[in-house]
Simulated assay, not measured.
Amino acid sequence: MGIKNMKDFKKILKNSFIMSFFSVLSLCIVIYVNYITKNQIKKQKEQEKKIFIQQVVPHNIYSLYEEKKYLVDSEWLGDSNKHNLWLLFRNKIAKIAIVESTAPDGYSGSIYILVAAYLNGKIIGVRVLSHKETPGIGDKIDISVSDWITKFKDLMVKNEKDNHVLLKKYGGQIDQFTGATITPQAVTNAIKRTVIFIKKIPLILSLKR
């Protein structure tokens, strides 16, 4: 190999190395930024959940209990995913459950909710975590838009045939929205299913601390 060819070869090798180095560096930066962003999003969502938990269980009640977190799956919760469950214990006995649940049949897709209830089926509070419902119509499920979701407070679900937690048009106590039936019906049905799940918790989980 001649001197000129050798120089050309070294130049090509050097350029290839530089390009490879910056490609790897760029990839590392992208991965790092993605990692940081995911962590920030995760932390933000956890903070949002804490805020929602404080909304569904008033502090004067929450402060009386010890909390233990579980991951559960059940057809009662609307899909096959794992759902967060917080149990509140007093004197080592579970009294209250806070459950993330899903209404899979919303008008614009799945609606994710948080339900708090005593294990006897009495609802403490409900909030919508996220949804894609139509602004001005279906979004009345959101506490920032209307107080509709607060109407479930103190209602009792005795069993699957209990009609209290249903829309009024089906014999229950919950109003639908003007111009919207599918969204409030989906949320109402999901809340009822979730409370039935909560009543079954002692049979589903070992509640020993």
Rank of each mutant, 00 (worst) to 15 (best):
P58K: 12
K49A: 04
R90E: 15
K42A: 14
K92C: 04
G78A: 08
P104Q: 01
L85F: 08
I61K: 12
Q47W: 00
N39V: 03
W76E: 14
N84F: 01
S74E: 05
F52A: 11
Y70E: 02
I96P: 06
L85W: 09
D79Y: 10
Q40R: 11
L71G: 02
E75S: 13
S63K: 12
K92Q: 13
E46Y: 03
E46S: 10
W76G: 00
G78P: 09
A97N: 04
T102N: 05
K82V: 01
I53E: 15
K50N: 12
I53A: 06
I53L: 09
V99M: 01
K68Q: 14
Q44E: 14
D73H: 12
N84D: 12
F89K: 05
V72R: 07
Q55C: 01
Q55Y: 07
I61A: 09
L77G: 08
H59T: 14
Q44A: 14
L88E: 05
E67W: 02
V57S: 05
E46K: 10
L64Q: 15
N60W: 10
I53K: 13
N84P: 01
Q55M: 10
Q40F: 02
L64M: 11
L71Y: 11
I93W: 01
K95C: 02
I41Q: 11
F52N: 09
H59K: 15
L77H: 08
E75A: 12
G78K: 08
L77T: 08
Y65L: 10
Y62C: 07
D73T: 15
N81S: 14
L85A: 06
L88N: 06
I96S: 03
E100R: 00
E100D: 05
N91R: 12
G78N: 08
E48L: 12
H83W: 07
V72K: 06
E66C: 01
Q55L: 10
Y62K: 15
I96C: 02
K50L: 11
L87V: 05
S74V: 08
F89N: 04
W76H: 13
N84K: 08
E100H: 01
K92H: 12
Q55F: 02
N60D: 12
D73W: 07
I51F: 10
G78S: 08
V99R: 04
Q55H: 11
K50R: 07
S101P: 00
K92L: 13
K45N: 15
D79Q: 08
A97R: 03
L71K: 15
V72F: 09
Q44K: 13
Y65H: 15
L64Y: 06
I98Q: 10
N84L: 04
Y62F: 15
S80A: 13
